[in-house]
Amino acid sequence: MVTEFNTAFSFNGLPIAYADLSEVAYSLVKEGDPYEREIGDFLLDWISESEHILQRTSGSTGSPKEIHLSKKAMVKSALLTGGFLDLGEGTRTLLCLPVSSIAGKMMLVRALTLGWELTVVAPERTPLWSVTEDFDFAAMVPMQLQASLKDIDRVGKVLVGGAPVSKELREALVGKNTIVYESYGMSETASHIALRKLNPPENEDSPGEAPAFQALPGITLEQDKNDCLVVYVPFLSKDPIQTNDLVSMQDAQSFYWLGRADHIVNSGGVKLVPELLETRLEPILNRRFFLTGIPDTVLGEKLVLVAEGKPDEELMAKVQESGLLEKYEVPKAVYFLETFKEGKSGKIQRPEILRELFKGE
């Protein structure tokens, strides 16, 4: 299947014609490192006669599943992003994400479709350390962006996604020359369908405060009766995409993400949104953590805190005495796990962590 291709495309400094993609792909598969073999496999799939690409979802909120994405839809998504971020032909781009993820695949699709000068490095925590040149654009997960702050001014624009961006990281971006956009999307939407610019801040008096996500042109939004986001993406499907994301709509095209409906804890008839409470606790907990509900004979569910690292007997007292939570919002217990399981994007895998933590119970 011949897909849209821009002849300005180059790969690690070498101009590549469409007819040469298969040769490049086979070379990567045969001789490359594991991340390069992933790129080769994707390129072979991309130029194959199939009209779809097989993608595995992240599994961050449930069991991973395989979905089929239309190549035409992926191309339209690439064009939409390129237009919105003003990233045209000749954009010097760094690919430092695994191509097993939809984010990594879409970086390749954008480069092929828009004619970018693509430089590829291993998807490691500090991707800028292995290259010396400057770039117009890169996509990173929050962990990579955090580790690259010292060198991030070498990149004109950064798209960050795959996991929530902490307030600490947003505050660290204040004063940086790099323009950073946070993305909202999922595998099913062929990467992001909404963006928000994290810096410079919209309100100079509130550095680190994130604005609302803004839907990309042509994409429309609704909120269902349960306050969950419903997305209409014309180039993907005539049918709406129902999410489990709780949102607060600012207007018809923008929203604030609050948390996941399937994470809500109903404790004694009070509905608690863990992600909202986690945001308040971020400044005082210097470790990764999350809040969740577990069965309780009295309350039905009780809110508990799950923290990464060695047990700290003072952690619960710190939460209780912080004044950041109302009395009914304070977790009833704290559990520690030495290391959190995470996906390739750095997003913690809550279901897997809870299964490990409570196995045998």
Rank of each mutant, 00 (worst) to 15 (best):
S183N: 06
Y184H: 04
Y184N: 08
Y184S: 10
Y184M: 00
Y184I: 02
G185C: 09
G185Q: 14
M186D: 05
M186W: 11
E188L: 03
E188Q: 06
T189C: 15
A190R: 14
S191A: 13
S191C: 15
S191R: 06
H192F: 02
H192I: 08
I193L: 06
I193R: 04
I193K: 02
A194G: 09
L195I: 07
L195N: 07
L195D: 08
R196T: 03
R196G: 10
R196W: 14
R196L: 12
R196S: 11
K197A: 08
K197M: 08
K197Y: 10
K197P: 15
L198V: 10
N199I: 08
N199P: 15
N199K: 02
P201E: 08
E202K: 04
E202Y: 01
E202Q: 01
N203Q: 04
N203G: 02
E204K: 08
D205K: 15
D205I: 11
D205Q: 07
D205S: 13
D205H: 13
S206F: 13
P207T: 07
G208F: 14
G208S: 12
G208M: 11
G208K: 08
E209F: 08
E209N: 02
E209M: 07
A210L: 09
A210T: 01
A210S: 09
P211V: 01
P211C: 03
A212Q: 14
A212D: 14
F213H: 09
F213T: 09
Q214C: 07
Q214M: 02
Q214R: 02
Q214Y: 00
A215M: 06
A215L: 03
L216F: 11
P217R: 01
P217M: 07
P217H: 03
G218D: 14
G218L: 11
G218N: 10
I219F: 03
L221Q: 07
E222Y: 07
E222D: 11
E222A: 12
Q223D: 04
Q223C: 07
Q223V: 04
Q223W: 09
D224F: 13
K225Q: 05
K225W: 13
D227T: 07
D227I: 01
C228N: 14
L229I: 01
L229A: 06
L229V: 03
L229Q: 03
L229P: 01
V230T: 12
V230Y: 12
V230G: 09
V231I: 15
Y232T: 13
Y232H: 14
V233H: 06
V233F: 11
V233R: 03
V233C: 13
V233G: 11
V233D: 11
P234N: 05
P234R: 00
F235W: 00
F235V: 00
L236I: 08
S237M: 04
S237N: 00
S237F: 00
K238C: 13
D239V: 00
D239F: 04
D239W: 04
I241N: 09
I241L: 06
I241P: 12
I241T: 10
Q242V: 00
Q242M: 04
Q242R: 02
Q242Y: 05
T243L: 06
N244Q: 02
N244S: 03
D245R: 10
L246M: 05
V247K: 04
V247F: 10
S248I: 05
S248V: 06
S248T: 01
M249K: 08
M249S: 14
M249D: 10
Q250Y: 05
Q250R: 02
Q250A: 05
Q250E: 08
